[in-house]
Write a protein that binds this DNA or RNA. Structure first.
Lengths: 335, 335
DNA sequence: CTGTTAGCGCTTTCAC
DNA sequence: GTGAAAGCGCTAACAG
């Protein structure tokens, strides 16, 4: 930095002010300093400036896993937005939610980040308390917490209207496939099931909820179970597209036509959903990330604000949902 | 820190040494200091210590995109390994490779990270030069560069033996679907095509290479093109599972049985490959990440070393590949 | 084995 | 509008 000062013929303080965009520097001087810095390809050390300002220029993103489609997309949204604010993104994979509390305590967040984004973590009160210890603002994504900055969708409402779509098509036997991993249900999962139950109750139809493993494997197992019933349903609403894909796969292998024999509905609008022609509830994952990043930036400026942002979902009706026995009708044609 | 010193009844230097695990501290004193630190829930500021040691405790991971399956898995491998070394992972999404050079120059890597991992970036010489400007060790993943630390698989050899699998099954008309995005071929893509060509040449069979878009969409388009030929091939080798999935989808929609009418082979062992019963070449993505992280850690200690680590691939033969016209034979049964 | 001292590279009063 | 000086929280010689 003193090299730059020498080259521009000014003092250290002036260089600092000029490069930081601080007021009180003659335009002509500022430009001279910037030129000198560029020529020496000098950039201020965030580390050093942070030491005195207290800011780190970094935001931590906590994710349970990194592999699923959802997280990649959300991270992309977050990263892009943070970059605009000239903030770096630190990613921590919390892993299977056992011992999170301890893990969170170990994490070097203390004086290492300006804010934390908890991505789809479903933390309980004690875990949140551990995060609070860090002393920086926390933004929750996909988990709605009172008195906390968070961004989310209305899972219940989305599931409700998606279920109605199936009911309106004429289905009267609709199964819901819910999944839980070793650590229990996710918050969004519970909400979606509720939405489904509400719509079914409104229509006076008996709900059928299956609980199984998560992911395609869980969907495949659930489909097997449903198909071996005395009276299989005519539609399956899967908690997520992942699960729906497992269902689709089993149906395909069994030679059961979708949607003629069985309608399948997913949730998420996964990457592959369009290719599979899967009807689904789309949630704006990338945008959720971007909003979360924005909230994090704002929270740094004003830690007192606890904005709640709800994002809209869209039911995407594709080829995997239709009225029950649409095919038989078409083929039989004698009603 | 001085609070800790007071509480433990020692000087600042002793606290620093004790907490850092530096030698020359009485065991009894060390424990006392650690206890004091714990009671005050004090952790040393990386920022401040970095200011004097020069180390940042951070590694930057540069990825072109975040969404594809590959990057999530690789990032998980990297992150886990870095955490073991008590290093933080900074993730930068470089985006569409246009203007990377400039983007890399803008990135706040300068005195902000101890090492850089370039994940599947396919940088050219000038872009690498920009990275070198940063002055920290760089580890390349999925790109093999002389005189550079890198971790990779032998794409050509893997593609060669996968092609031989198809040849050995009796196929004599095997198409390869290659994909390129707007910025051109990836390095691994070129290598895989080469492996395919070599195996075909060895067998004296004419190669058929299709170049199209990337991803499932590219696969779908390529499949359409192949199926509309006067003499469609009996097997399709897709550059990646992504592409293969597009191919599978088109075949399924067209009512063409896999593998009876058409064998399909992928590359990567994508998440969904098992569910789709897709034969493929598995590459150890998570392990590549872990190794890259290890190399990065080692490179920090010894920047002169430029280890090259080659990881093994495995051909996973599943249900999507079989001899040509296996079904006709079975059905016709009159040979 | 432990304490003292001088910075690491920057920002920030406070004078001028 | 600009400069001098005093730290931010820590480590690294150097004494003791």
């Amino acid at each position: 930095m003193s090299d730059v000062a020498d080259r521009a013929g000014v003092s250290l303080s002036t260089v600092s002010r000029a490069l930081r965009g601080a007021p009180g520097v003659a335009p002509e001087v500022r430009e001279r300093v910037q030129r000198a810095a560029a020529e020496l390809s000098y950039v201020v050390s965030r580390n050093a400036s942070g030491l005195v300002t207290g800011a780190t220029g970094r935001v931590a993103v906590l994710v349970p896993f990194l592999q699923p489609w959802f997280f990649g997309v959300a991270l992309a949204g977050i990263g892009t937005r943070l970059r605009q604010a000239d903030l770096d993104m630190l990613v921590y994979q919390v892993g299977d939610m056992r011992g999170v509390e301890e893990y969170l305590g170990e994490l070097p967040l203390r004086r290492n980040v300006d804010a934390v984004i908890a991505l789809s973590l479903d933390l309980d009160e004690r875990e949140i308390a551990v995060l609070d210890e860090v002393g920086v603002p926390v933004v929750f994504v996909s988990q709605r917490i009172p008195e906390r900055a968070s961004v989310f969708i209305d899972n219940a409402a989305a599931a409700r209207s998606a279920t109605r779509h199936l009911l309106n098509l004429g289905h009267t036997s609709i199964a819901f496939v819910q999944s839980a991993d070793s650590t229990g249900f996710e918050w969004s999962s519970a909400e979606r099931v509720n939405g489904y139950r509400e719509a079914m109750a409104e229509a006076g139809v008996r709900p059928q909820v299956l609980v199984g493993e998560s992911g395609p494997r869980g969907g495949a197992l659930a489909a097997g179970e449903l198909l071996s019933r005395a009276e299989p349903p005519t539609a399956i609403f899967a908690e997520s597209d992942d699960v729906a894909m497992g269902v689709l796969r089993v149906l395909q292998r069994s030679g059961l036509a979708v949607p003629e024999v069985m309608s399948v509905l997913g949730f998420d609008n996964h990457d592959m959903a369009e290719l599979l022609d899967l009807s689904t509830v789309a949630q704006p994952v990338s945008e959720m990330g971007a909003v979360a990043a924005r909230l994090a930036v704002e929270a740094v400026a004003d830690p007192a604000a606890v904005p709640h942002v709800e994002l809209a979902t869209n039911l995407l009706v594709r080829g995997s949902t239709a009225g029950p026995r649409a095919a038989s009708r078409l083929v039989g044609g004698n009603e």
